[in-house]
């Protein structure tokens, strides 16, 4: 098999995306689909261009204040707890299965409760996001700290290294691929949590708020505009994490390619 060129790696998916857009436009126009049901891509583009200030305001509210705040809080909390738990084998054995199970639950269901606790503004959104990302991050960090080559660990012992030295020089770096794995999951969850929580009450801005109100007014083009923004944001965040991962864990077999 010949290797994929960079051109092919970009051209094929891009071409496919463009083809879908063109077909969409043609179908909507030829069959005269009501714009309230499915607006054509050009109308969505026009709606976006015409309401940049609103989209920006919503984006700041939902992504920056809600999702990103929750993301760093949840990640930091998971990191701190993981470093503490790591010192107690008994706790680790007990907490791993519990955290694993919690990570599989629809924690997003806490959204209405968080709105009740922390009010309509971004604090409740950040709280939902923080709890949602906490468990996958905890599981991944603990898993990463445990995933140390026994030979590497013995080596540190022959040097008489301290716990902190081993953590800093061996287990920390070895856990990084796992940390990034968790972060990739967490970024997707963060956006979902921040938007869902707005469905349960929000100030008069935010992507989730805009989607529900514009949907109520049958202004579907504006709903699509928010969808485009959220999709681009989701992909960009993922890309950012993947990009940092590539630079930081360049040594890992999965990144050497």
């Amino acid at each position: 098999m010949r290797p994929d060129t960079t051109f092919e790696k970009i051209a094929w998916p891009l071409g496919f995306g463009l083809l879908v857009l063109v077909l969409w436009e043609v179908v909507v126009r030829v069959f005269g689909v009501s714009p309230a049901i499915l607006p054509p891509p050009t109308a969505i583009g026009a709606a976006m261009a015409g309401s940049l200030p609103i989209l920006w305001e919503d984006w700041v509210q939902t992504v920056v204040k809600g999702a990103l705040n929750g993301l760093w809080m949840g990640t930091l909390a998971a990191l701190i707890l993981a470093l503490i738990i790591d010192r107690f084998d008994f706790l680790k054995r007990g907490l791993m299965p519990v955290a694993n199970f919690f990570a599989a639950l629809p924690i997003v269901g806490l959204a209405p409760i968080m709105v009740m606790w922390f009010g309509f503004d971004w604090h409740s959104k950040a709280a939902v996001v923080a709890i949602m990302v906490f468990f996958p991050m905890l599981v991944n960090i603990l898993g990463g700290l445990a995933a140390v080559d026994p030979m590497h660990r013995d080596l540190m012992r022959t040097y008489g290294a301290t716990h902190i030295q081993t953590l800093h020089k061996l287990r920390g770096p070895a856990a990084l691929p796992f940390l990034f794995n968790g972060l990739k999951i967490a970024t997707s969850l963060a956006l979902i949590g921040a938007i869902v929580a707005e469905y349960f009450g929000s100030p008069i801005r935010g992507m989730g708020f805009r989607i529900t109100t514009e949907m109520g007014r049958l202004a579907t083009d504006m709903v699509w505009a928010e969808i485009v923004v959220s999709a681009v944001t989701g992909t960009a965040l993922y890309g950012l994490v993947a990009g940092i991962e590539k630079r930081v864990t360049f040594w890992h077999p999965s990144q050497r390619g």
Binding site: K9, G15, F16, A36, L38, I195, T235
Partner: peptide, 28 residues
């Protein structure tokens, strides 16, 4: 080459944003 990138991208898009649209389209 065509589908794999879109499969990954699909998971980075917050599905909740699409939810109301999916309801409208399946009603339609």
């Amino acid at each position: 080459l065509t589908l794999m990138p879109w499969a990954i991208i699909s998971q980075t898009i917050p599905i909740v944003a699409l939810a109301p649209i999916i309801v409208v389209l399946s009603n339609a």
